[in-house]
């Protein structure tokens, strides 16, 4: 039997014959599919810290999650679609969290609730705190606040629903679990002398060699806050790309590569997507500033240089 690449059919660029031009079934199917999916998101019954209390308050009578079909909080990851990471993720706790995430069936979503889950929060500097669950798991929606009020959490959940609404069955970048098969489980971190992300083994090995040779290791040399010659500073990527674990099976490797690519595409798509940060209500002047400007290091450095030049002249 000739294999049919289903993805080709779902491609919106697919040349549709004239007599089938009216065929828009796939779009409306997506809509129904997304509607049903987003209206029955079952969160994992799972609280970490302070934010969990606000999450419970959100589930209680006054804010009532069940209006969104989310009241069925499942204690088992096997039955849940959404992981609300509600609170500080510690190094000791991230191990079970990754395990729980791996046990959730796809499609699965992660909502980082509060400053701690998004980026470490006030406890970020602590030795046992993970600076954001997105260091280990892909996060779909971040809800800032410490803690976010129940209404803020609801806003985040609605943002998640909107995101789901925007996904298309025709686009495997959006729904990778149909395109490239079930995703590989996230490698479970190891508790050694400090927490070890298995995806970073190579990097850790490299650094250990540096350390053994008595060279400085572990800390990246960022340019000092104001530096006259920023060009001399090593160019650093915004975020360390975790080297993937080397799979021994070529087929697996291929699958992994595919998935990586799909994920990357997903990420870029997310990046370009207009975000939902709303203008503050009843706020006349700041409306056009709603989307915060991305912090541009290059521009900033250029500015510094310019200022320096001005000063010297």
């Amino acid at each position: 039997m000739p294999t049919l690449d289903l993805r080709e059919l779902h491609n919106t660029e697919f040349p549709v014959p004239d007599e089938m031009q009216g065929n828009i079934a796939i779009t409306s199917l997506s809509r129904i599919y997304n509607w049903s999916r987003r209206s029955s998101m079952w969160p994992l019954l799972f609280g970490l810290a302070c934010c969990a209390i606000e999450m419970i308050a959100t589930a209680a009578a006054r804010y009532d999650l069940s209006r969104f079909g989310m009241e069925v909080m499942r204690a088992s990851p096997r039955q849940s679609d959404l992981m609300i990471v509600s609170g500080t993720v510690t190094k000791k706790m991230v191990v079970p969290i990754v395990r729980l995430y791996n046990q959730m069936p796809e499609p699965k979503y992660v909502l980082a609730m509060g400053a701690c889950a998004s980026g470490g929060g006030p406890f970020k500097e602590g030795y046992n705190v993970v600076s954001g669950i997105d260091m280990y798991l892909p996060v779909d929606v971040y809800v800032p606040g410490c803690p976010p009020t129940p209404q803020a959490l609801l806003h985040g959940l609605i943002a998640l629903q909107k995101k789901i609404d925007g996904q298309s069955l025709a686009n495997f970048d959006d729904v990778p679990w149909y395109g490239v098969g079930p995703s590989e489980p996230t490698p479970i971190p190891i508790l050694g002398p400090d927490i070890i992300d298995p995806r970073q083994m190579d990097l850790i090995r490299q650094q250990a060699e540096l350390a053994a040779a008595g060279k400085p290791y572990g800390v990246r040399d960022l340019p000092p806050t104001i530096k006259p010659e920023p060009a001399a500073a090593p160019k650093v990527p915004a975020k360390t790309a975790a080297p993937a674990a080397e799979p021994d099976d070529p087929e697996k490797a291929a699958r992994l590569a595919k998935r990586e690519a799909a994920l990357a595409r997903k990420r870029t798509a997310q990046g370009e997507q207009p975000t939902e940060t709303p203008a503050p209500a009843a706020e006349p002047a700041a409306g056009d500033q709603a989307a915060p400007k991305k912090f541009d290091k290059e521009a900033m450095l250029a500015k510094i240089r310019e200022r320096k030049a001005q000063k010297e002249s």
Partner: peptide, 11 residues
């Protein structure tokens, strides 16, 4: 950004 591992770790 200062940490080579991009994470709050130190070995």
């Amino acid at each position: 950004e200062r940490n080579i591992y991009g994470k709050n770790v130190k070995y």
